[in-house]
Design a protein around this nucleic acid. Sequence first.
DNA 1: TTGTAAGCGAGACGGTACGTCCGGTCTTCAT
DNA 2: ATGAAGACCGGACGTACCGTCTCGCTTACAA
Lengths: 198, 198, 198, 198
Amino acid sequence: MPATQRPRSGNRRDEAARQAVLHAADDLLIEHGFGALTVEAIARRAGVAKQTIYRWWPSKVEILLDTLIEDSDKRLPVPVEKPTAKSIRAYLHGFAEFLIQDPAGKVFLALLAEAQHSPATAESLHKRYLGPRRDRECDMLAGAVAGGTMPPGQDLDVTLDALVGPLIYRALTGRETPRCLIDKCVDDLLDLRPQSEC
Amino acid sequence: MPATQRPRSGNRRDEAARQAVLHAADDLLIEHGFGALTVEAIARRAGVAKQTIYRWWPSKVEILLDTLIEDSDKRLPVPVEKPTAKSIRAYLHGFAEFLIQDPAGKVFLALLAEAQHSPATAESLHKRYLGPRRDRECDMLAGAVAGGTMPPGQDLDVTLDALVGPLIYRALTGRETPRCLIDKCVDDLLDLRPQSEC
Amino acid sequence: MPATQRPRSGNRRDEAARQAVLHAADDLLIEHGFGALTVEAIARRAGVAKQTIYRWWPSKVEILLDTLIEDSDKRLPVPVEKPTAKSIRAYLHGFAEFLIQDPAGKVFLALLAEAQHSPATAESLHKRYLGPRRDRECDMLAGAVAGGTMPPGQDLDVTLDALVGPLIYRALTGRETPRCLIDKCVDDLLDLRPQSEC
Amino acid sequence: MPATQRPRSGNRRDEAARQAVLHAADDLLIEHGFGALTVEAIARRAGVAKQTIYRWWPSKVEILLDTLIEDSDKRLPVPVEKPTAKSIRAYLHGFAEFLIQDPAGKVFLALLAEAQHSPATAESLHKRYLGPRRDRECDMLAGAVAGGTMPPGQDLDVTLDALVGPLIYRALTGRETPRCLIDKCVDDLLDLRPQSEC
DNA sequence: TTGTAAGCGAGACGGTACGTCCGGTCTTCAT
DNA sequence: ATGAAGACCGGACGTACCGTCTCGCTTACAA
């Protein structure tokens, strides 16, 4: 695992070292929790010098943000193209599962937690993750309104908090989200038109 | 400020020292954030020896929990006695405000955050705060059902997550909760009977 | 060797830890040279936390000075009481041997060297070691003058440099000092009266 | 100062870079002491890549040795041609001044010091500087003996240590050498014949 | 005339040690 | 017995240099 035979890179940034750091951070968070996520431990695990980490990341939080951004778009894309009642509901179910099951979900929760302790983390998390993602989620709902799936006249941002807040709070308190919670929220708050199936 | 003239205590637990520690922890959290909340700093500020802290509290988290429990019942009691549509709605509005405005709200958010990093914190937080409080909130809704204010047949625990989750998520992300969000949730999810005013 | 069963000390300075540090520093200097004499290595070898070292010594130089002062008075006392031609000559022979053979001699040379690199070391070395020792050496010569062994009228400090300088320079350049060098200097520079023997 | 407009060199060793390194090392030693004399600092100051230094010098000590050898023959040549009592005495006075005043004298002291910490430095210093210079100094005294200025029958190497040791020790301990010290040593140890003047 | 080989500035890399900070345990002594 | 004081071991922090390496450029010599 310590990437013994990684070729030296010379003058340019060593992509292999970057990957090793991201994976080491991810793995340590999952295996031993945020408390064990020290820069020294990441360096040790990645087989990388501490300075190599400090050269490229201002803090361990930014490392986690990098992994989160890379992973979360892969595992849980926001269905912005022609969203339907079905795809929106599926997105929320996927979101609930992502938070509980996916390593990247754990990373997100850890970052959201750390943001409470450090304003710098809060700002990074918003600028680099929450903001852009929320924009796409708004686009999703706006697409649903435009397509006639959803009635207009709601503040989409607030609506999203109402939908997503419960999922996140359940995850933060270590409890799975039952499907009925999501369905209840979707049914009561979104008032989607053709939701016959699902 | 470091409680200079507190009289020495002798052989019973020193209540003044206990208060000094609780206030010091509270103040440090508010003034400098969770990052500055070290046991050494608390001891310094409270004018107390480190050992006095470790003798009575297993960790700084338990100190915060003590302050949270003491404060939150005072500032935000759960209206379990004959809850009405009005009092339930007021409770949720009060909760949103508590999270943003009240020092104890900050303590709660900090503990909820810390619980993500440490399973021991998570367990304490549930056993000593979240569990009991949630029980009383369930009683509140159960009282509303019994009084005919709310229709029966819902899982009250899940319903509470749907109501409270958005408020907490807004607070965690540093945004105030608009009244319309709460009202929308209450209206759509609770289906309360006599909600004429407000 | 790492002093495993040293009893914990509590409120007062731990004398065992102090000794362990001094010995570790001494040993490391002798065994691996000044280059290997890092604070981390001393701490490791002494079985002591780094902070314990920084608490009591401002730098590794002061550690060495402590060992030097303790040792050099034991191994090479200055014969201030009724010095004779014989005892003065013996002192210089002893000094030459001290520099080459004695661990404390190595410590002295290392400190004299380090003083070239750091003004702070130079000052400490003078104030705590060279100055006091030179005072006693002057007393020695002054006693010889008073006792009629040595003619008066010389600057004793300068004379001592002429006697001691060659020994130190030989030691610094890694060459033993032949007895004839010392005898030549003593005979030519000191002009001692009853030097029949030796 | 960092030699901005030095032309690139191409295929052969860049003499300008060599000079820049030597001067940078010299200047840093004088201005900020041996502690600040890191390879990185030299490279920075000389406007040269670290690798250029490592390509041509095995260590910073060899850089200093290069400057020392170049400078010390210029500033303080050994009077090997027909040495007289006057020229020998002048050489020793010049040596004392060289050690205190001349930048190259500081370099010498620094190297002599560093030699205590590192055997490799000691060896280089002897082979490249101390040995050859001592040979010429022996030649000087041998010339004096041959010319009748000095009586024969002494070990010249040992005599030189007796003459030079005090000067070096004074310099190492940061004290100027009074003229009387040198004169006393020359008079008492060398027994030069025609020393009427000076 | 054009490879090609070396020197060069630049700087990333794996390491080691720095000096500081805090955590949690322990002992001493005064109350 | 309690509590203030504070020494202790352990270990992470972020920084500075170490000595090695690769890159892309420039230049001089050889083919």
